[in-house]
């Protein structure tokens, strides 16, 4: 079955803005991809700075998805969506840059869904999800768009 914004929206019960193309199939991207203030990085690319704790508690990603991050001012969530039983994720992650929200491991295509940014697909593999930062004075500030 072709996965589209419309089908993901139906699976998760999450609405997407109506000006986005709802019926086109969602591209599956073999590599780094960004969605607004989040980035999905194949773990091997940054394995030297991100480690999953050995005794990490992994959670299965349910059909309705897992909310990864929500924008400012009650904004829109970035949601990780996968078919039940194909994807698990953990937040027990050590990141030398302290930007990682979590790591997911998927055996089928998993999707990142956002009401304004649309959706993007990740082929089977292990990925780190990182937030974006800004430089403010002497410190870093996390971006929340």
């Amino acid at each position: 079955m072709t996965v589209t914004l419309a089908s993901l929206s139906q699976q998760t019960g999450l609405a997407v803005l109506d000006h986005l193309e709802r019926s086109a199939s969602i591209p599956v991207v073999h590599g780094l991809q960004a969605q607004g203030d989040l980035i999905v990085i194949p773990l091997p690319v940054i394995a030297s700075s991100v480690k999953v704790w050995p005794d990490s508690h992994w959670k299965d990603v349910p059909g309705e998805g897992v909310e990864l991050l929500r924008g400012a001012a009650g904004g829109n969530p970035h949601t990780l969506v996968a078919d039940p039983g194909t994807c698990r994720w953990t937040t027990h992650v050590l990141d030398s840059d302290q930007l990682a929200i979590g790591v997911f491991e998927t055996s089928a295509v998993a999707y990142l869904l956002h009401p304004e940014h649309g959706a993007t697909g990740c082929p089977p593999g292990t990925y780190v999800i990182r937030r974006q930062r800004e430089h403010e004075g002497q410190r870093a500030r996390l971006v929340a768009d």
Partner: peptide, 17 residues
Amino acid sequence: WTYGLSAEQYSLLLRRT
């Protein structure tokens, strides 16, 4: 830098939505 990546790593970015 905004994602904690080097220029080489960031240049691997394939898609932005």
